[in-house]
Computed example of a mutant assay.
Amino acid sequence: MIISIILLVLGFVLLVFGADKLVDAASALAANFGIPNIVIGLTIVAFGTSAPEMVVNIFAAVNGSSEMVMGNVLGSNIFNVLGILGISALIYPLTVKSNTTWIEIPLSLLAAVLIWILANDMLLNFQVNDFISRSDGLVLILFFTIFLVYNIMVSKNGQETGESIEIPLGYTTTKSIFWILVGLAGLVFGGKLIVDNAVELAHLFGMSERIIGLTIVSIGTSLPELATSVAAVRKKKVDIAIGNVVGSNIFNTFLILGVSSIITPVQVNPASNLDILTNIVAGLLLFLFIFTGKGRALERWEGGLLLALYMGYLALLVFN
């Protein structure tokens, strides 16, 4: 058990280190070839912060660990809104841009509802099992493509879509390629260590892979989003914090769950409906809270409420 815990922690360290190096080196390489900062932000940085979830889910899908796949996606989305935004809003109230209010947050809520629709075949299609099929995965990928095209169009119109990217200095082309390979290696080895040892711990403690995925794995893979959002809030770049989280949720649902279900159709545990509904409620509360108080913002008391709800959700998981 102790060895599994050590290897799990090592996996998270490698995963976060790999993602960080991959983003820095790839951003520098793209800048060396004259690619605009806004394009780097929409592609390399956005994909990089979701790389931990992607790698873990690919390994889980290949291993046929459907509960880990669903648990990581739903757990990350729930932690992003209730946990990360809750913590960020407690540090400093979060103002929200118009695009985020009317397009990106509703789209993330739509993504949460879409998971419920795709995952309830027994209720809606009268099937004998609930699962997200390969065709469902293709639908999710199509939604992701639309989201990506939307971001590109917005950037072409000169509107702010997210963080202004600071390109790391001192990266030559050769050095960038070296660190890209190192980052990819960290992601691959870290992801495999996490999946293998999380499954092992679940068996040792008599817990389901769903619970491990919803708690330890999802929080661990969301560390880049947490670090980015807290750093942004401390610099008073409050719109970045909420845009980062909402964008990550859209990536998790449309891209990561889509790719995972294409690799292996995802069997849905009936107990996952609690997590799916919690994900919907979190998205709905975020949308509603923006319109309470003065202006479009997430206030400190609302952040505290989101964080308290997350603690309550974790307690419910543990006691169940």
Rank of each mutant, 00 (worst) to 15 (best):
L255A: 05
L14M: 13
N252I: 09
A46M: 03
I132Q: 01
T43G: 04
W102S: 13
G213Y: 04
A60W: 01
L169Q: 12
V69K: 11
I91V: 11
S108V: 07
G206A: 09
D275L: 03
I152E: 12
S272E: 15
P224N: 07
I216P: 07
S176I: 08
F131G: 11
L305I: 02
L223A: 10
M122Q: 15
N120L: 12
V16S: 07
S88W: 06
G220D: 01
F33I: 04
I6E: 11
G11E: 03
V318P: 02
P36D: 00
K175H: 08
N273A: 12
E302G: 03
V73Y: 07
S272W: 09
S176C: 06
V230S: 06
E200G: 06
R210D: 08
E209M: 11
G295D: 00
R210M: 10
V139E: 11
L148N: 14
T95A: 08
D239I: 11
L307A: 09
K237Y: 13
I152W: 08
G243K: 00
V154G: 09
I219T: 09
L10S: 15
F291D: 02
T101G: 14
S229G: 03
V16H: 10
K192Y: 13
M122C: 12
L306R: 00
L187D: 04
L288C: 13
I280A: 02
I103V: 15
F126W: 15
G303A: 01
V154T: 15
Y171W: 02
A232Y: 05
F33Y: 11
L148A: 15
V268D: 07
L226V: 13
I44A: 01
I58M: 02
F178S: 11
L309G: 04
V62A: 05
E104T: 15
I87P: 06
S208E: 10
E302Q: 01
G137V: 02
